[in-house]
Design a protein around this nucleic acid. Structure first.
Lengths: 211, 211
DNA sequence: AGCGTTAACTTAACAGCGTTTAATTAACAA
DNA sequence: TTGTTAATTAAACGCTGTTAAGTTAACGCT
């Protein structure tokens, strides 16, 4: 409604209000289907008011992604405490997949559309910090297993191993998200697909065959 | 420019002209960035002329996808003649990946955005025909290897195996397409990633360890 | 107290989008 | 020669993200 100098706290509160509304709409119907005017309407402001807090729509998306990268990493954090290195990798994969499949529109936004470069200057996520960066978690866990020489001897690059695991899980999840409702393919149950992928990655990467 | 009753042949020619122009633009800059007016301009017609041949933009996309599904399957067809069943699966994976990585915008259109349901009524691609359907090719090749009991005994569903292979290759390609320019991850060489994924799938799925 | 400045916010407007409607034009059939 | 009709376009609609130009109310200053 009316203009009144706001404290920094109030400004942040409105910023968060915008983010929450945008996230809610994005998650429900996808980024492209949501309009600025709609976000404004939901929080009781005009669309242009949003531009006082975000440069453009992409900035909102980036900010949400940032938060969600943190949320993803945070959700996986406890898995790092599993003792067995192999079990830990598998658990990380399942945790990641659960996130992807239960927040498909989030996941699409984060990993299935080229993000606007996610400027590290701006991003609050500390790249490489396993507390905040899910890829760093995976890499850390893979490195531990690598140090114990659990992988096949021809695999000499832990990064390559981590990226292969990621790609495998991501492949299952992203195909599910984009083509689940496609009649073209006679899809098997998603849980089964995920499980077989996990087993295949383990069997294919580890030195000793799984019990 | 002007109006003159056209033969069916001429109509098809213009239809194809539209498709070719649209494909060129789509491939170069992605579906979303290309406008109807732009397609029209490229072929020397107004934007609205397109609507005499296609219901809407989605219809163009569908038609192009259809053609490209055929092109993909056709490009992979010769691989089916490889004798060794394992070698054949690997070659199919590489062929598929080569298509994805050398036509990223095509691939994005075909496998990374939920297509408008690709009505089988309209589609000219014969679903399940290995001559025309790349997934049918994979399934066929996997089935052959399955019949020879090359896969691990716990893998009792050939569909599940095929879908795992697809997901693995797709995971590598789609991550590359969407996140290659992302500074977040310290990406290994794409060829290396692809190769390790192939090897992992083979090692992880096959009964006997690879030589 | 009154005046200017300024922050917060809105309305109006712009350029562009996909698409629809209405108008134009040229060739054919009668 | 006149209608009819197919091919095409220009104009318009409602939408988008975004910008420019107001409007309004609170504050600091004289």
């Amino acid at each position: 409604m009316p203009p009144k100098p706001k404290t920094e706290e109030e400004r942040l509160k409105l910023r968060q209000l915008i983010l929450d509304a945008a996230r809610e709409l994005f998650v429900a119907r996808g980024v492209d289907a949501v309009t600025m005017r709609e976000i404004g309407r939901l929080i009781g402001y005009s669309a242009t008011a949003i531009y006082l807090h975000f440069k453009d729509k992409d900035a909102i998306i980036r900010a949400i992604c940032d938060t969600d990268f943190l949320a993803l990493a945070s959700g996986l954090k406890q898995i790092l405490q599993i003792a067995d290195p192999v079990e830990r990798i598998v658990a990380l994969g399942f945790g990641y997949a659960r996130f992807a499949l239960s927040h498909p529109n989030h996941y699409r936004m984060m990993f299935m559309t080229q993000r606007p470069a996610c400027d590290p200057e701006i991003s609050e996520v500390q790249q490489g910090n396993p507390e905040q960066d899910a890829y760093a978690q995976l890499k850390h866990v893979v490195q531990k297993a690598f140090d114990q020489q659990l992988f096949r001897p021809e695999l000499t690059n832990p990064d390559l191993i981590a990226q292969t695991i990621w790609a495998g899980i991501h492949g299952v999840c992203s195909l599910e998200i984009t083509l689940a409702n496609d009649t073209w393919v006679n899809w098997c149950d998603i849980e089964a697909r995920l499980h077989v992928m996990q087993q295949t990655l383990i069997n294919g990467l580890l030195r000793a065959p799984a019990p």
